[in-house]
């Protein structure tokens, strides 16, 4: 590779570490992060969703300090649902591990189990809603109840979106390893969000 002399006058020696400058670049350099584009896209989406839930939690924290707030007693089903979601995460993690080993059978099995548990979680949340209504908490009975429905609904919608993606990934034969891993990442994220929301509901 010939030694490239940067034009001093042009004042454009802005590249760092010699990479990405001059002719004859080495591949890589600074043009991209060393992660697959789809994974970066997912991270950015999760950042957006994080802001969304943070705004929701902030609103919750402000609203709960106003005088008409009444604390809720959460439906007991939520604990079970949390366990279902955690299990879903676990199976998807196993699917991701299996996909790294190129173990197609284990990947598919765990992927299917994880997704089904996701569906079970959504069904459980719906059941929790009806349990909650039976306890006399309706959407407008108190802002705490309104927040409960709003939070679970927004989280559930994100999960349904994830299930659509899961369906697309699972219908491919064979499922691409990267897609399986992205599904897993997203499930972990949703589990984390749910734990924060659930913790908030329990604590207040």
């Amino acid at each position: 590779m010939p030694q490239v002399k940067e034009r001093e006058g042009s004042g454009i020696v802005r590249g760092r570490g010699g990479g990405g400058n001059g002719g004859g670049n080495e591949p890589g350099g600074l043009e991209a992060f060393p992660v697959p584009t789809a994974r970066l896209g997912l991270w950015i989406f999760m950042a957006v969703a994080t802001v969304l839930f943070s705004a929701l939690v902030s609103a919750y924290l402000v609203r709960m300090n106003l005088p008409d707030w009444k604390s809720l007693s959460e439906p007991g089903l939520l604990g079970l649902n949390t366990a279902l979601l955690a299990l879903a995460s676990l199976f998807l993690q196993r699917a991701a591990w299996a996909s790294r080993r190129y173990d197609l059978g284990a990947t598919r099995r765990n992927l299917q189990l994880g997704g089904l548990l996701g569906f079970a979680f959504v069904a459980g949340q719906l059941l929790a809603w009806s349990q909650f209504q039976a306890m006399g908490y309706f959407l407008v009975s108190n802002p705490s109840a309104s927040f409960f429905y709003l939070m679970t609904a927004l989280h559930g919608l994100h999960l349904l979106g994830g299930l659509v993606a899961w369906g697309v990934v699972g219908s491919r034969v064979p499922p691409s390893a990267l897609s399986v891993q992205l599904c897993t990442t997203y499930w972990h994220f949703l589990l984390l969000v749910w734990l924060v929301l659930y913790g908030l509901l329990l604590l207040t």
Binding site: R14, N21, I44
Partner: peptide, 18 residues
């Protein structure tokens, strides 16, 4: 999502951020 990911990942060779 597209614009940000594209800027971060799909720059041509030598197109550093600066």
């Amino acid at each position: 999502l597209n614009y940000v990911t594209t800027v971060l990942q799909l720059r041509t060779k030598g197109m550093t951020l600066m």
